[in-house]
């Protein structure tokens, strides 16, 4: 795991997954820096964790339930005022259906 090479193609794939339009010199720089940080972070491989469970939260976590009753909520107009575009009380977004894959 440590010292693994990251190719430009791998970095480009990660950028695509993360919806970041990153190309050219910027992508080349991030590829190098990604590799350096991953090599450093790869030190965790040296720790013996064969007998431990993963910790997602450091505090005792349990499911939090509440009654399914309507409570206070934000005013629709207050929320839509901050939207890039809205129409008829709804968010207006680019077409997502019928796109080329």
């Amino acid at each position: 795991m440590t010292g693994e090479r990251i190719t430009i193609e791998q970095a480009a794939h990660v950028a695509r997954l993360a919806r970041l339009d990153v190309t050219g010199d910027e992508l080349a720089l991030y590829t190098m820096q990604l590799e350096a940080v991953l090599e450093y972070a790869g030190q965790v491989a040296a720790v013996d964790t064969s007998s431990v469970q993963p910790t997602a939260h450091a505090t005792p976590a349990e499911n939090v339930m509440r009654k399914d009753e309507p409570g206070e909520c934000l005013e629709r107009d207050d929320v839509l005022r901050e939207a890039p575009e809205s129409m008829d009380g709804m968010f207006l977004v680019p077409r997502i259906l019928g796109e080329a894959p």
Binding site: R19, D21, V79, A83, P84, E85, F91, V93, P94, A100
Partner: peptide, 19 residues
């Protein structure tokens, strides 16, 4: 993602606007 608040740039598909 440029849909509900904050910056939105570009046009075309949703994915292109997000990226």
């Amino acid at each position: 993602d440029g849909m509900r608040y904050g910056l939105r740039l570009g046009d075309g598909s949703a994915e292109s606007v997000m990226s």
